[in-house]
Design a protein around this nucleic acid. Structure first.
Lengths: 241, 241
DNA sequence: AACTCAAATATTTTCGAAAATACGACGTTG
DNA sequence: CAACGTCGTATTTTCGAAAATATTTGAGTT
């Protein structure tokens, strides 16, 4: 076998769970399907018919079914025996609950990460935050252009913060809630420039508090940060009915 | 539409999620597979080959694959693309973490249930507790004979306690952790008669505190109750290596 | 019109054959 | 003999035809 590639930068980070899933076509369709639900390509409560989906993603029925049942256990779709799959509905109540759960997990996880994290953990946070800030610091038009990339880097940033937390299940549940929040965050994507600037500052402050190993401050900043976004999603949701 | 059936007893409880899953053969094999993992029929870290499983459960490969991927997102099995499925390993660390998470969910859920629960909720708790006590009050030999039934009724009892909690995600995560704990509880099934008597008493006390709407007391009793079982599992786990 | 029932249609669910991939055995080479 | 590549076997992964199930349509009845 030939050498696959020289690690260009020093980014010796293990492949993420998401990247691993992408290896197989089944994992790929799972990712695409979830992304299409998050981006409301498939509207809440819409039926997901195999006939349509096989054409759209060009995969077999079996593969699709596997992806859909996984999304069902993740909570993105509902399934009723004999009646097929539907996109899970969204509601203000659910957003409130998911937000509360996510915040409680994230706060606990970051405290533990701060207590346990080593120098690599710290360095990775700085690196990933930098990547995020490269997009967030852009002129507003460019920033919006690269929204999809921003979502990815934002996720990586929050993941890096808690990566040193030793509780695997805590991280797992945290990620589950983060994924659910994505659905609601999506409605806030057309934010104002001032909102964008605010996020930029918040991320830097969170990063600094974490590096300074100030668990209380980091937890408090994160709570504000998350709740603020959720509150905006909530008002948008209320406006649309 | 004709009357479907006269509710023979007063048990007007909605069909449980588990019962719904059993409707399809896919749901059935999922349940059996999970149960076989919980009961250590398949040992932790053991490979799960399709050839073997199709014979054992007499279902097609596709159906099995679907069940296995769901168990993967529930955390009972692990999956590596191209290498198939394995039973998830168990460890003392994991037991400690799962116990902590479950207790935090259960305590929060029961407080909310006590705040929100109506008379039907109360009545159901009394009924389900009675069904549980019918087995727990049996002479020890008979009690052990019906262990599988006990597991089911024990689950129903704890589910009934928190059923009035309005947070769907909280209940969902709670159930996830409860299911995981089942794997570890299994090693404690050969308990002594005195242990059995203790559980019998604890369940009655929890039931009474809940009916009396004493959230603090109920939460405290539950924490002790759960932690006690986990601690015993922990010592057994340590003894076996 | 309102209701029932059966046939026709639409959709899901199951299954295992076929393709793709991983793994081990074995000979070859440096 | 260790490292490498090749072939054969074991296993997983994908796919869509066929069976099972749900839904709609429409003719017949009250």
């Amino acid at each position: 076998m030939t050498i696959r590639s020289l690690p260009a930068t020093g980014r010796a980070v293990a492949k993420t769970a998401a990247a691993k899933a992408e290896a197989s076509t089944g994992g790929h369709v799972l990712t695409r399907l979830r992304s299409d639900i998050v981006s409301s390509e498939f509207k809440p409560s819409a039926r997901l018919k195999f006939a349509e989906l096989t054409k759209r993603y060009d995969v077999g029925i079996g593969t699709l079914r596997e992806a859909l049942s996984q999304l069902a256990s993740e909570g993105f779709v509902t399934v009723e025996a004999g009646k097929g799959f539907k996109v899970a509905p969204v509601s203000a109540e659910e957003l409130v609950e998911i937000t509360d759960l996510f915040i409680s997990f994230e706060k606990r996880a970051i405290r533990e990460a701060i207590a346990e994290g080593d120098e690599d953990w710290e360095a990775n946070i700085v690196a990933v935050h930098h990547r995020l800030s490269l997009i967030e610091g852009l002129p507003w038009a460019d920033r919006m252009e690269r929204h999809a990339e921003w979502v990815q880097r934002h996720r990586e940033f929050h993941e890096a913060l808690v990566a040193a937390c030793p509780g695997h299940w805590l991280l797992r549940l945290r990620t589950m809630m983060f994924d659910q929040l994505d659905r609601y965050r999506f409605v806030t994507k057309n934010a104002s420039e001032s909102q964008g600037r605010k996020k930029f500052d918040e991320h830097r402050e969170i990063m600094l508090a974490t590096i300074a190993r100030d668990g209380d401050k980091a937890a408090e900043l994160i709570e504000k940060h998350i709740r603020d976004t959720s509150d905006r999603a909530l008002t948008i949701l209320a406006r649309n009915g």
